[in-house]
């Protein structure tokens, strides 16, 4: 058992209402933007539901330059520490609404109420897509393998999907479960080949290809899933103790639709090369945006965060939009 620790202190204090920049979302895009904003001497607040966003679901991050291997949650802590050091304030809360309020933005959060800022950086990332099949709401259907894998010790689980995230989930689960099925609707995978090779070598992982899950069943929790072959339409029932859904992500942009922010047909916030949206003073960065050639990765999100911070600085201090 390894016991790691790091301590974070926050004194109880009244939180200012007026800020230069409010960043919504504390994943790699949000925290990188925060570190840059802090260094640009902008008075910066991050409002986020958690520290690190999807970083928390990465058991080992092996493709972030400079770190051969790092736990995602460890990197999240380092990012927050670095932002703390340059004076950025973090509060854990959910943003419910953003409004343009004359020259300023009004940001309304569930717990703390209203805040005002000159610029807003949206870094709300994305959330796991649901399958949309009957039974999906049963207990035992999970979307975070990193969190829940230990609960499936010596159990049989299925992972649905064929991207890097699905393979990541399957590999994490194989450390605990007795058997892991990867169910994918094609024969080829979008996942990084290095992950696919590792999964193929793993004796606990079995592949069910050209197949889709059409139903999940169980009394109090998921007990079996119905899997259909897309070529023959044959159906089989598979006994499982848990199902992990990894069929891609959907951007968390709903909040900004009401504000008339331009959003593309897949829900991504449309930004230019400087991360500007169509609304003056409103920037977006990371997985929630339409940039990055569809490569949804930590390094890309972080890069966009840095650019968004520069644009916020130019806007606030140099009056340039």
């Amino acid at each position: 058992m390894t016991i790691a620790f790091s301590l974070q202190f926050q004194k109880k204090e009244e939180i200012d209402k007026e800020w230069d920049v409010i960043i919504i979302g504390g994943g790699p895009a949000g925290y990188t933007a925060a570190i840059y904003c802090g260094r640009y001497k902008l008075k910066t607040l991050i409002i986020t539901k958690d520290i690190g966003g999807l970083l928390n679901e990465i058991s080992v991050l092996e493709n972030y330059p400079g770190f051969k291997k790092i736990r995602g949650s460890e990197l999240a802590k380092l990012l927050k520490e670095q932002a703390d050091e340059v004076g950025v304030k973090t509060i854990l809360d959910e943003v419910l609404r953003v409004e343009r309020n004359g020259e300023k933005f009004k940001v309304i959060s569930r717990g703390y109420g209203e805040f005002y800022s000159k610029a807003v950086i949206v870094a709300t990332g994305s959330a796991r897509r649901k399958l949309g099949v009957p039974g999906e709401n049963l207990p035992g259907v999970s979307y975070c393998a990193e969190c829940d894998a230990p609960l499936f010790k010596n159990k049989v689980v299925a992972v649905v999907g064929g991207g890097s995230t699905a393979f990541h989930d399957a590999l994490v689960l194989s450390e605990h479960a007795s058997k892991v099925y990867i169910i994918h609707r094609r024969e080829e995978f979008r996942a990084e080949p290095i992950l696919v090779e590792e999964a193929k070598r793993n004796p606990k992982i079995d592949f069910l290809l050209n197949k889709v899950v059409v139903e999940m069943r169980g009394k109090e929790k998921v007990e079996e899933i119905v899997v259909q072959d897309i070529k023959t339409n044959d159906k089989i029932t598979l006994k499982v103790d848990g199902v992990f859904v990894s069929i891609g992500m959907i951007p968390v942009s709903g909040l900004f639709q009401e504000m008339n922010v331009n959003i593309d047909e897949n829900g991504y916030i449309i930004v230019d090369d400087c991360m500007k949206t169509n609304i003056e003073g409103l920037l977006a960065a990371g997985d929630v945006t339409n940039k990055g050639c569809g490569l949804k990765q930590v390094i890309i999100a972080a890069g966009m965060g840095a650019i968004a911070a520069l644009s916020a600085f130019m806007y606030i201090k140099m009056s340039k939009w």
């Binding site: 958690d50 928390n56 679901e57 975070c144 990193e146 829940d148 230990p150 609960l151």
Partner: peptide, 10 residues
């Protein structure tokens, strides 16, 4: 909680 759950400390 589980030891690997990063959201649990919240």
């Amino acid at each position: 909680v589980t030891p690997t759950c990063p959201y649990c400390p919240i």
